[in-house]
Design a protein around this nucleic acid. Structure first.
Lengths: 234, 234
DNA sequence: TCCTGTCAGATTGAATTCAATGTGGCCAGT
DNA sequence: ACTGGCCACATTGAATTCAATCTGACAGGA
């Protein structure tokens, strides 16, 4: 579960998934569905039929069901006994809850990571922030934002905290996408400034300052998201 | 996943698990194994054979494997492909990490819960704190401590935060037990004082104060635990 | 003595097959 | 026309069965 996931599932023209033989079938299928959800191919509320997924992999339904169990625990999928599986959807309140949790937890993770961030890594973060400022493509923005933040955590040698943050990002990915679409010019400017402030604090080795900036960054996003409940309609 | 789990799996003299027909088999088996781990019946590092569990339930191995997937995501079980499942064990660093996470997250959950705690609920918490002061039985202490803290969160109408805290408690349950065994008289006294301080802050509706007490309470436990690395040997 | 390769037994991974449950449409009754 | 019950179909839950992989022990050679 650690690290950043690639967001493009590799599917051939026939719809058959390429068989990368790393790990067991359940794990591969779970990763595929996870990526399909994160990339927006599977939207919140969409039904996931076991048979469909099984056929795409040329596998039986058993590894699919195990994969769905994993994804349920990750919060990405909602299971109902004898009824089916759906991509989890969130209410505005739940999303806000996740953001409040992130406000508390991510600064701690950053604290763990900061000693490991050298000049090269910090320059890379700066470059990512610059690219975000320049791009106007939503998917590109999302990818860069994810790489920027989760990238700043990669040097944290944690076991549970990194996975937790990953989960929190994953469950809110769809709403982050929808929200990015209606980022006003002014709000976007603030976001970029915060990113650069964060890089500066990291470069200065100012742990408390970095924590404060990051917490405020997430908080501001939460409040902005609260002003746009239409993101949660369908 | 919400709420406090009973810690005693119901097993008949024959070793056969009583069939409570609520929900599907996978879920029941997952809950059984979870409780077996939390109660100390399954110790960290202990192997869990699918066939054994399946026989106890008179079920096949398939629901057992699905249950193990769920528990893996909960952090209670470690799975290795084609090798087996073991009850997860933690290093001192990982345990400390969980406690640091709790320091940040539980005060937030308490903030969510406090508006729902009425006089009756607060009196109950006070009573639990008193019972903890009186008891000298480790299992009783553990049960009361769990009921006190998780009980103070029950009125929080959250979806992810409550489950998260539950997971954090579960993964550290075994080490909390081992640690409780060597609580010195003085430290125990501090713990009880903190519990009463917490109840007082809750009764006063002092959210910030309650957060501070709770955070310090967890922090002190983490530091005390760090002074006893022998808890993690075997 | 220690290391390495091989083999039998044990254990897990997955496919096939059958049973149980939920869903949606049709019909009768009000 | 609308509501409630009944039945066929679709979908999931779980058992049985077979294949793949790992573990541990033993024999042989450096």
């Amino acid at each position: 579960m650690s690290g950043v996931y690639p967001l493009t599932p590799s599917v051939s023209a026939s719809g058959q998934v390429s068989q990368t033989h790393d790990g067991n079938s359940s794990t591969r299928i779970a990763e595929f569905i996870r990526n399909a959800i994160l990339s927006g191919e599977y939207r919140p509320g969409a039904r996931i039929r076991q048979e469909d997924v099984a056929q795409r992999f040329g596998a039986s339904r058993i590894p699919v069901r195990e994969a769905l169990r994993t994804l349920k625990a990750d919060g990405l999928v909602t299971l109902v006994a004898n009824a089916g599986a759906w991509v989890s959807r969130m209410t505005p309140a739940e999303c806000s809850e996740v953001y409040e949790t992130r406000e508390r937890v991510e600064p701690l993770l950053l604290r763990y990571a900061m000693p490991g961030l050298d000049a090269v890594a910090i320059d890379h973060l700066d470059e990512l922030a610059e690219q975000m400022r320049r791009t106007h493509d939503v998917e590109e923005f999302l990818r860069l934002d994810r790489e920027f933040h989760l990238g700043s955590y990669t040097t944290a040698r944690t076991t549970v905290l990194g996975d937790l943050v990953n989960r929190l990002w994953n469950t809110t990915q769809h709403y982050r996408r929808a929200f990015t679409l209606l980022l006003e010019e002014h709000s976007a400017r603030v976001v970029h400034d915060e990113h650069h402030l964060l890089v500066t604090a990291i470069r200065d080795g100012d742990t408390d300052g970095a924590e404060a900036v990051l917490s405020g960054h997430i908080r501001r996003t939460r409040l902005a998201l609260a002003r746009h409940p239409e993101v949660f309609d369908q």
